[in-house]
Design a protein around this nucleic acid. Structure first.
Lengths: 330, 330
DNA sequence: TTGTATGCGTTATCAC
DNA sequence: GTGATAACGCATACAA
């Protein structure tokens, strides 16, 4: 059995209610006894029992994160950042990698104070039993059932094309990404690309729109290989994700093409790893730490105030210029 | 406030202990009253308070998994498999990505029934407050403080060399892996390689032993590039992990070398993704599903019997022959 | 077959 | 400052 405040009380020679106060840093207990109690507690390896705390105080100080697709690098980086950010607050985080519904169930049982999830293609009007729910995903025109942190993929694409076109003179720009019809984030990226091209009066060569049908390294690799087989080549490529872009780089190199001399590449996702690639990648997207910070602050605000204003938070993407883009060759 | 069993009792005109029994489908309560109570409960929208349940029943049916290094593919595949396996049992799994000690604290507070962790380079004689602890790691000669599932890396290396040498005739074999002095799994692999080479009377060219200083894709890539700069090349390479091997393949291709004609490669780690690489990789290691199954069954056995026999379980590595190894050119 | 009483580990409200 | 004591919602041994 684990150690309780009663055990501590016995050893420290005080009543357990005093122990409780000391543990909660109450001003009602004398500093000397307080520190003595704390010392004993530490020695005994005391850990408060969430169930008991929850039962009386209606709070667990736990945030649950649902993450069924654990094998994607970008998300794992985000999760790490969220975890680090939460560690700076009084809350802790636990994670469930089970399917959405099962995860929700587990978290309900634990009565976590709030839940974060990634809205990839879940279509849910969720019964969360009043547990505050926050999603990182895409704000829709229609009703949103819960607050959303939106990385503003459309805007990001706009900035990417603007840079490529207005600053560097590119006209023949390709997009290599996942054309999923169910993953809203991916849909937004593709959509944003098309819109931006149109905005700058650029025509989209349809064979410059390459569906990777996935988000992994080799998806990007295969896609770019196919794209470059044609003699009609783009002067710049926008890669739909970190992993995809990694594959794109290799595919380009394999064709003996130079980056950025022969071809420029700009990648979606703004994570530090971008700088460590074979060629430091110019990238676009909301910086991952900002995203994490916003997500964490928002869920806590939601937990503590029971609402969030505004309910939808669109983040501001940033362009990170590194070494993979150059002026177009004329 | 939400509805409790007392509220139900009042409406249904019974005592609340009867309600409790009815809700738990106890045979001690008459079917008619049981169904009446259930009906009332449903009408009132009763939701059990898990904190209260947990407080009294001493069981959570939750297994905690500690996983501080979430960005490695092999482990995320293992975690997925473990999660799937646990889902077949009455248990659920939650995960903590915080540093080891912090995770342990969190799980203690949750009173999880058991904890799984990856023993990468934690040197712990842990105070788990009697929560059953199981590790996936390397069994040591000295005392082990808790049960271990050991993937038997040494044996795996032996099988790899045996195949390469006895079946395919290779003599000039290189090992590209992480030579960490703190990560026991990596130490075992290197050690196993050396032992096996010796066993088969093969000499180790020291420049065929390449330290990647990491476990990522580009670590393998850089390492093999360096290795292949020399004119004295191996005819076969053993890659220390899935990610490393991915990089090795690219590095080899870049030098215009054919796999397996010019050079054979066999990778450590036995995960399905191996088949999806550019070249389906022949690999060695305990099949990941077997590993997951063993881990899950063991922790549950440990939870339910309070002990595990045997305390150390060495798994049997399997060779998966795919398309990356060929007979040595003579 | 049903009801009563007790305790799980905490916090919080009182007295002392 | 400190210590009893009453909740919190539930399961369960025991009584009826």
């Amino acid at each position: 059995m684990s150690v309780t405040i009663k055990d501590i009380a016995k050893i420290a020679g005080v009543s357990y209610s005093t122990v409780s106060k000391a543990l909660n840093d109450s001003p009602l207990v004398k500093p000397t006894t307080k520190s003595r109690i704390l010392k004993v507690a530490k020695e005994m390896g005391y850990e408060p029992n969430y169930a008991a705390q929850r039962l009386v105080s209606k709070q667990t100080k736990i945030i649950g994160l649902i993450w069924p697709t654990i094998e994607r690098v970008v998300l794992s980086t985000l999760v790490t950042n969220i975890s680090n950010e939460i560690r700076k607050t009084p809350y802790s985080m636990i994670l469930s990698v089970e399917p959405f519904e099962a995860s929700l169930d587990t978290f309900k049982r634990f009565q976590v104070d709030g839940i974060i999830f990634f809205d990839e293609h879940i279509d849910i009007s969720i019964e969360s039993n009043h547990i505050p729910l926050l999603t990182y995903g895409v704000a829709e025109k229609k009703v949103n059932h819960y607050p959303i942190i939106d990385a503003n993929h459309e805007q990001a694409m706009f900035e990417a094309i603007k840079y490529l076109h207005s600053n560097l003179g590119h006209k023949k720009i390709a997009y290599i990404g996942d054309f999923s019809k169910t993953d809203r984030m991916q849909m937004e990226k593709l959509n944003g690309f098309k819109k931006a091209m149109k905005h700058f009066g650029l025509t989209i060569n349809h064979h410059f729109l390459v569906d990777t049908k996935g988000l992994d390294w080799y998806d990007g690799y295969y896609a770019v290989s196919k794209l470059l087989e044609s003699t009609e080549r783009p002067t710049a490529i926008v890669g739909g994700s970190y992993d995809i872009s990694g594959g794109i780089i290799r595919g380009i190199k394999e064709k003996q093409l130079q980056i950025p001399n022969d071809i420029s590449i700009i990648s979606y996702d703004n994570i530090p790893q971008m700088a460590n690639m074979e060629i430091p990648l110019t990238s676009i997207g909301v910086p991952i730490e900002q995203l994490a910070t916003e997500i964490v602050h928002s869920i806590i605000e939601l937990i503590e105030n029971k609402n969030l204003h505004p309910n939808i938070r669109k983040m501001k993407p940033e362009l990170n210029i590194r070494k993979s883009c150059g002026r177009v060759n004329t």
